[in-house]
Design a protein around this nucleic acid. Structure first.
Lengths: 124, 124
DNA sequence: CGCCGGTAGGTGCACCGTACAGCTACCAGG
DNA sequence: CCTGGTAGCTGTACGGTGCACCTACCGGCG
């Protein structure tokens, strides 16, 4: 409404959140890109573009966090299946700790925000 | 411990997290850049660089989320003090909702991570 | 057969937030 | 005068993200 030039709220998920999600899914079992693409949406990631996902997988492959191998598909093109490595598992544990820290920060924010809300609503 | 080759874990706070923090602090009372610079660390932001903070404040000023005015200091250089506008307050409410969503996503991740942990520790 | 749609993987590129580095200016104290 | 703290600002490179686009395989349909 009014003349306000409609400004989107550009606050999103943690930076590089895709990688933790992929590692977690791969910790649940080996998979391939296209399948992961459909599964990540369950973790809060919305409208993931395939390009970024495949790039992320390749990068983690080169870093040794995952291992990939081509496997023929019964019906359709071949798939590059990814498997978590020990190093990737370590990385997953480390990143889970970081995400927990972030959760704590967000909780601190929420509490402080609530305090501001109540302060500006003295009635009652 | 752990002699792992120290691959940094590049997972950080939500994107554009600085703005919500600044808006929240300004909702608690008017302030100026240098003071905000010291206060944001309490909200989880670590090693914020002044450049980005001042730029962020300027940007929000131009977008109408805050209003600024120069005020002389008793001892030291003049300060540009910032004050939250109504539009900024709306933005704060909206962004608090977004952060709550992010918290929910992180909680989903944590739960799923815990499940993987317990699954991979059946014996021994 | 040719074409389409779904599966599966990939590249190029522009945008933008972030990080790092540096700068000016004001004021107080030694 | 020079240092150190306060206060604000700029320049720039890096990297993650988003958008667009592309190849290739396969099955089914007209």
């Amino acid at each position: 409404m009014s003349g306000a030039p409609r400004e989107e709220v550009p606050v999103g998920l943690p930076r590089n959140y895709l990688r933790p999600c992929l590692l977690l899914l791969l910790a649940e079992g080996t998979s391939h890109g296209y399948e992961l693409l459909e599964q990540v949406s369950a973790l809060g990631l919305d409208r993931v573009d395939p390009g970024g996902l495949y790039r992320s997988l390749r990068a983690m492959d080169e870093e040794g966090l995952v291992r990939s191998s081509w496997q023929p598909s019964a019906s359709g093109p071949a798939r590059r299946t990814y498997q978590l490595t020990d190093e990737g598992r370590e990385w997953l544990h480390a990143v889970a700790g970081s995400l927990a820290e972030i959760s704590r920060s967000l909780e601190a924010y929420r509490a402080r925000y609530q305090a501001v809300l109540e302060q500006s609503r003295p009635a009652r």
